Computed example of a mutant assay.
Amino acid sequence: MAQIFLLEDDPILGKAIQLQLELENYGVLWAQSIQEARRVYSQSSGVDLFLLDVNLPDGDGFGFCKWLRQESVQTPIIFLTARTDEDSVVQGFTEGANDYIRKPFGHKELLARVKNQLSENKPSLELIRFAGLTLVKNQQILKTGTSFINLNRREFEILSVFFAQPETIISREQLISAFSAGEEIFDRTVDSHISHIRTRLQKHGVSNIKITSVYGQGYRLEKTS
Rank of each mutant, 00 (worst) to 15 (best):
I17G: 04
F186I: 11
I12D: 11
N121P: 00
E155W: 09
G216Q: 07
E86I: 13
I169R: 07
G61S: 04
A16G: 05
G96Y: 08
I176T: 13
Y41K: 07
L118A: 07
Y26W: 04
K122D: 07
K108C: 00
T81L: 07
I158L: 11
D85P: 00
E24P: 00
R102T: 11
R188N: 15
I176V: 14
H204N: 13
I128T: 14
L52S: 03
Q174V: 05
D10P: 01
E120V: 12
E71N: 14
T224W: 10
D187C: 08
S192N: 14
A31C: 08
L151Q: 08
I4R: 01
K223T: 09
H204D: 12
V40E: 05
R39N: 10
F156C: 08
F156E: 05
F64M: 03
V214K: 07
L201A: 04
L51K: 02
E71M: 13
D53M: 08
I185F: 07
G27A: 09
E8S: 06
Q174A: 14
Q117N: 14
T146S: 14
N116F: 11
E173S: 15
N55C: 07
E183C: 09
F62D: 03
K103E: 05
R83G: 00
P57G: 06
V89L: 12
Q43D: 13
E95Y: 11
Q32T: 15
A2S: 13
I185G: 05
D9E: 06
E24W: 00
F64K: 01
P11F: 03
V190L: 02
